[in-house]
Amino acid sequence: MEKVIEFKNVSKTYPDGTQGLKHVNLSIEKGEFVVIVGLSGAGKSTLLRSINRLNEITEGEIVIKGNSITKAKGKQLLRMRRDIGMIFQNFNLVKRSSVLKNVLSGRVGYHSTLRTILGLWPKPDVALALSALDRVNIKEKAYSRADELSGGQQQRVSIARALAQEATIILADEPVASLDPVTTVQVLDDLQHVNQELGITTVVNLHSVDLAKKYATRIIGIRAGEVVFDGPVDEAVDKTFDQIYQRSGKEQGAEASGL
């Protein structure tokens, strides 16, 4: 299998001395649906956000499809980011802009600066954006203002933005943490469809063990900046999660059912 994301001895030390990541070695392959689980503050976000360098690492190297993003500079870094879609907990749409404009903003890396700032999107781009919206079932909202949509719909718009980017990797940082249980399932279903139908490698941070088990093809457990579990979903038994979450079996049952 083709290695898409590789962590080579990656460490992150914050200026105040706390260690976010400790000697992480991972390799994620094409088409995997990886869910990263762990306590809040364990380093899930740091790990995910270092992949497209929203966070800088202090040691080691991250390689995307054979090219080091850690060493990438200027245009090369922008090009690499263009191929990595990102979904955020708070959707991060421009609320005052239309849904379509938000989706089209995923295309900035493909055109000249002048063209994109004037909003002169070529027809094929608009078609691509609309079909991306269609894939997540909100095409009819294309011309609504983003803040008129519900949370779940906004998160689907941000998935459409990643699709419009023609990303080969999607990173999702707690994508359902601010959604209700029903829309949570819809959004994760969307991510799963995109992963299965388009073969987009997907890495998701999740709080909930149940959801991780339901959607992941592979689970990575993080505790205090270290990878403490890494394996296919059927190898992740309750004892594994106890280890990740540092707790006894009784408590685990309570939290897992509570999303």
């Binding site: 497209n52 090009r79 980011r81 263009r82 995923g106 890396g109 980017q165």
Partner: peptide, 17 residues
């Protein structure tokens, strides 16, 4: 809101975009 700015960084926008 810093969120959309972060999203624009993530899609590979240059500073002007």
């Amino acid at each position: 809101d810093n969120g959309p700015l972060e999203a624009m960084t993530a899609v590979g926008a240059n500073k002007v975009q």
